[in-house]
Design a protein around this nucleic acid. Structure first.
Length: 452
RNA sequence: GUGGAUGUAGCUCAGUUGGUUAGAGCACCAGAUUGUGGUUCUGGGGGUCGUGGGUUCAAAUCCCAUCUUCCACCCCA
């Protein structure tokens, strides 16, 4: 056989059964929490038309989209006089791309299926997304997002609900987290009040880095974007408030209360905290004015979740978007949602050793193979066990017993059943408990009563 | 996309100023034990030293390129 250099594309991974068991553990917790809050699953295709995807994630996002080459002789469609510029060429040879997240496809989905959906629509979606990013710790080119969104209501109860979902999910996983919460309307108010309304995006991007790079560097970046030092100092004085979550709204009203958007944002936040107070969360929830988030479709509340005990990027994030469906021709539909990063959560749980060890699903029973005649009897008995819901398999070759037993051992199979020629003539089997080593003889007609 | 590291057996890693046949642990296979695994003991297989070039009498070791992985930036789950 030719020995080839096997590899998989950069930033993608294979998962062995042990890893799948752990991944499924995460997915099943998320599904359980989503469903108990009334969310329903949907799926959308891996690929979308580029017209759906392009321009929704900012300039940076467009660059990170994986584009799919058209099928067939796509070069025919390229105009004869086309230059060799990549950007002009690509529009002729590619019209589909792999989805970058689940939110934009969801907006497209909602608009296309608006007449079949029941609003307010609560959906969850667990599927892979792709980004042509450079891989790093906690950063993959193919990874799973687990989105929950409710679309078609402006109630702040949903913001509070999502925080409860975060709280419940991470509680079940045993991951200690901090939830950061802010509101884009408040950020907009701050930008207005310091005269940086025209540079709102630059302002948010720079502010978002504060805890990482400090005020000096943030100022540097703001200055380079045309926001003067006077404005910077004002920003700093507003953001460094030293107030509690409860005090913050009144404080903000006193400073940026003349901004109409800001007032709306402050009110929204008050409502969220009102709902949260009704049912206190296990995790810490912090009203953090420096939380900004780069995605530009957020218009209200924004969320981010970080693991407390391990250094990893955010493991969950999201926000409210007032007009995401507007770009697809369905205006004035507000939604709010968050996305759990399953792969990062996996990495966090792995690092903290939080996975239960009995996760590997496997057969409960292995029939030892003693040869051509005996295996047929085992084949039949295995079917009878399966009828009773007991996962059973027959070792397919009459290999040495040592090999068969160590197979059972490694696969963590709880019981082995032996029926050699002697047991067959006596109508019995030997059932061995692989953990205790204890072995019992059971008559075939009593096999289904054995407490596996 | 920018900058910096890394790569030796399936896995984790040794390998001296360049110098005979590149090692260990774990894993795997076989035997001790031909109807009994997880412990122990004995033996065995397995490496084009990431790949391609170059320097040299001689390269895992030095140089260049390329790929992979990791780290920082950008951005984000």
């Amino acid at each position: 056989m030719a020995k080839v250099n096997l590899s998989i594309p950069k930033g993608t991974r294979d998962f062995i059964p042990e890893q799948m068991a752990r991944r499924n553990y995460i997915f099943s917790i998320l599904k359980e929490v989503f469903e108990i809050h009334g969310f329903q699953p949907i799926e959308t295709p891996s690929m979308e038309n580029l017209s759906t995807l392009l321009g929704k994630y900012g300039e940076e996002g467009d660059k990170l989209l994986f584009r799919i080459l058209n099928s067939g002789d796509f070069m025919k469609k390229v105009p004869q006089d086309s230059d060799h510029n990549t950007n002009s060429l690509i529009s002729h040879v590619s019209e589909k791309g792999l989805r970058y997240d689940l939110t934009v496809p969801f907006a497209r989905f909602v608009v296309m299926h608006q007449n079949e959906l029941n609003f307010p629509f609560r959906r969850y979606q667990i599927q892979p997304v792709w980004r042509a990013d450079r891989p790093q710790r906690g950063r993959y080119r193919e990874f799973f997002q687990c989105d929950v969104d409710v679309i078609g209501t402006r109630s702040m109860m949903e913001e509070a609900n999502l925080i409860k979902i975060i709280d419940e999910a991470f509680e079940k996983m045993g991951v200690r987290v901090a939830v950061k919460l802010n509101n884009r309307k408040i950020l907009q108010g701050i930008a207005e009040s310091v005269g940086a309304a025209d540079n709102f995006i630059d302002f948010t991007v720079a502010l978002d880095k504060l805890d990482k790079i400090g005020w000096d560097k943030v100022f540097e970046e703001l200055n380079s974007k045309g926001i003067d030092s006077n404005a910077c100092n004002k920003i700093k004085s507003i953001v460094e408030h030293g107030k509690t979550n409860a005090e913050l709204p009144d404080y903000l009203r006193s400073i940026i209360g003349d901004s109409e958007v800001a007032l709306k944002g402050i009110e929204e936040m008050e409502q969220v905290f009102e709902y949260l107070a009704i049912s206190p969360s296990k995790c810490e929830v912090e009203f953090d004015l420096t939380l900004a988030r780069g995605l530009n479709y957020y218009t209200g509340a924004i969320f981010e979740v970080k693991a407390l005990d391990v250094n990893m990027g955010s493991i969950c994030g999201g926000g409210r978007y007032d007009d995401l469906t507007g770009i697809f021709g369905m205006p004035d539909v507000s939604g709010v949602g968050i996305s759990f990063g399953a792969d990062r959560i996996y990495d966090v749980m792995h690092e903290l050793d939080l996975f239960p060890d009995d996760n590997l699903s496997s057969s409960k029973v292995l029939f030892i193979n003693f040869g051509a005649d005996e295996e047929k009897s085992a084949f039949k008995l295995a079917y009878e066990l399966r009828k009773n819901g007991i996962a059973a398999e027959v070792y397919p070759d009459s290999a040495k017993l040592k090999k068969q037993f160590s197979y059972a051992d490694q696969k963590k199979i709880a019981y082995t059943i032996m029926q050699g020629s002697e047991e067959r003539t006596n109508g019995v089997v030997q059932i061995k408990n692989m953990k205790s080593g204890e072995q019992t003889e059971v008559a075939i007609e009593n096999l289904s009563e054995f407490p596996f």
